[in-house]
Nucleic acid binder design. Structure first.
Lengths: 210, 210, 210, 210
DNA sequence: CATGAATGAGGATTCATTCAT
DNA sequence: AATGAATGAATCCTCATTCAT
């Protein structure tokens, strides 16, 4: 919530430009890597001049926090939609999470790759995301699992749920981004098959007998 | 004008030069990302002239197959060393694999990042390494698990072992490469802690009661 | 990314820059051959930066159409001036044309050489000059001869006049550009002497008795 | 005639290399201009090493005198063949010369272009040609015309014959080398048509009534 | 001697950034 | 403010020439 809740035309225009440039970035990322995109290219795709770009941003890297924030929004929306689902069992939760995560990663893979590969800028990225705390989002995913606390028998349920979420995302992401490369080729399964295997892997962990 | 971007050396000296340049690449990767390394830097670190670089390689990217091959060697050696270990139980196998994998990834993280970054070159990369079949290497890791076949109760033991290997590598790699970023932050655990948690996650899967 | 290698300028300043670079090319051609002129040299002589050169032209060769166009202008002006002259006889026409052509070639020899050298670009060159049709210019020269149609007895007066113009230019050009080389040395005469000989050669052709 | 008329094996080998390189030059000139041919290319095409090239020649330009000499041989042979022909009239001489010259130029156009465009090296070129004096060759062509001295009525028969030879060569060369460019386009005629027109142009000159 | 690997000066080219319009 | 032309440092890349093998 900004202090001043009335947006002036000036701010309005500025926001538009920002949005245009971000869209241009998304567009360009489909074709090539962040480091190979030039500012001229961005400006051209956004329909603004390079001068205008520099009025808004210090340099190309300064777009990344925006990309990260924007991604945060999508992530948040996605989690929203997951939270609205009704689940009957822990098993169903894991199954749904796996499939949905895969789809989500597939749709956002260029952003993931960009943020990963430019992770040297992590500090700025993390600082920038004032609106949505990323960790909180992942906890909301954990919480979906923890709704079925009764079924979970492993010690340290919260940590366990976190780990499950982490493994789901990271393994699927690897399959999505680098299907033919180390380490993804360690498992012969295609990503869709693997998404179905994941619940079978993780359910026993959460529900193991003591 | 060779089709291929790597010239087959006809003299002993050439092979030395190639090795020098590869070493220089490894050296530079400690400091900075592949994209930011210049040819001049490589040449200088290798103690050769830029012209020599160009005599051997079409461009910087043409070094990557060499990096990939070289990495294949290291990987193979590492698996060799793991195969020589004696294990008492499946649990111990998983514990050792987790810790050792973490260490190995830590030592080779810049190579992983570089190869991932340039994964668009996957075909060339994969074709480039005729000496070591990457999939076979990972199967050797699986086989270490499968030594304790008797303890494994899950259906599809081979696939299961593959999946376990894949999850160990991919989750640890994420923690190693991007500890503060999506998705690694989904789990609060530090990489060393997580390496100890992994066996607890994966053992139940392999040994789950029907 | 324009198809064409010459960018159409959108600002007045651009046109100036273009003119500056063309002038720089003319200046440099006095000293050396086109092949030996560097972009830096051109930029420096034009008083602009190398980047500016590249903003306007894809490469050095892309200047040639401009050179060709510019030469077209000069050619046209020169023919203008010839058309304004008053002649008393066909003989006088040929005498004047020979001398004037020699002078004109002498002044433009570096341009001729450059355009010849790069004649592989003929199509582009020819297409590049939409403002002045080169063939029409030469026809205007022919027409000066054809003013004295009555004196001309040879069959096919138009073609004959064309051939005369062609021979005047080509033979003098050879003498001017390569005075000591094949085929110019075939005739011992200096270019000035030869320019005076030409009318004697060509007049009989035009006025030969049947 | 060399002082020492016995050629040692060493000289023999050297001569071979020289011949190979000259052939390579001819071969390359079909594709591209002299200035774009690299020494590596020449060496490769000649089947020798660059080092060997440098053992024989100071630089690429040093090949030009060889090219010029070699061309001198062909020219001489060609004139030989012309001298052997029997002519019935001056008209026939001119007709034959035109056609034959055209053919000869066509076959040697890359050499002509190369020598013309590198004419800055004229002095060296001229000096180099010790075996065959170029001017003498052209005089032999003139002499073929002068065989029909009786038919020639113009004053200064020798100079006139020279001029005729010069015009035949220079105009046809222009048509052959730069058919679509200034000044060749001044005359609409194709080179074969023009070769037939030339005698009609030049005969009246030589045989003009006083 | 022949070879071809190595050299590095020199020229080409890009693109983030500035600044006049 | 917005534009896009201009800048020039930084990097790429070539190729004549040298020199170790």
């Amino acid at each position: 919530m900004p202090e001043n809740s009335v947006i002036t035309p000036k701010q309005q225009r500025s926001l538009e430009t920002q949005r245009k440039l971000l869209n241009a970035l998304h567009f360009c990322l489909k074709d090539k890597f962040f480091e190979h995109i030039t500012i001229q290219e961005l400006a051209q795709n956004a329909g603004v001049s390079v001068g205008t770009f520099y009025r808004r941003f210090k340099d190309k890297e300064s777009l990344l926090p925006l990309l990260y924030q924007d991604f945060g929004q999508r992530l948040s929306c996605w989690v929203d939609s997951l939270e609205k689902l009704e689940f009957k069992s822990l098993k169903q939760v894991l199954e749904t999470l796996s499939i949905e995560t895969w789809q989500f990663l597939e749709e956002n893979k260029s952003v993931f790759r960009t943020l990963h590969l430019n992770s040297r800028l992590q500090t700025e990225l993390l600082d920038s995301d004032t609106s949505v705390d990323r960790k909180v989002i992942y906890q909301r995913l954990s919480n979906i699992i923890l709704c079925f606390k009764k079924e979970i028998t492993v010690a340290g349920k919260t940590n366990a749920a976190d780990s499950v979420i982490f493994i789901i995302i990271t393994s699927l992401l690897d399959k999505v981004l680098y299907p033919d490369l180390t380490p993804a080729i360690a498992s012969k399964l295609e990503v869709n098959k693997f998404a179905k295997e994941l619940p079978k892997i993780l359910l026993p962990y959460l529900t193991a007998e003591k």
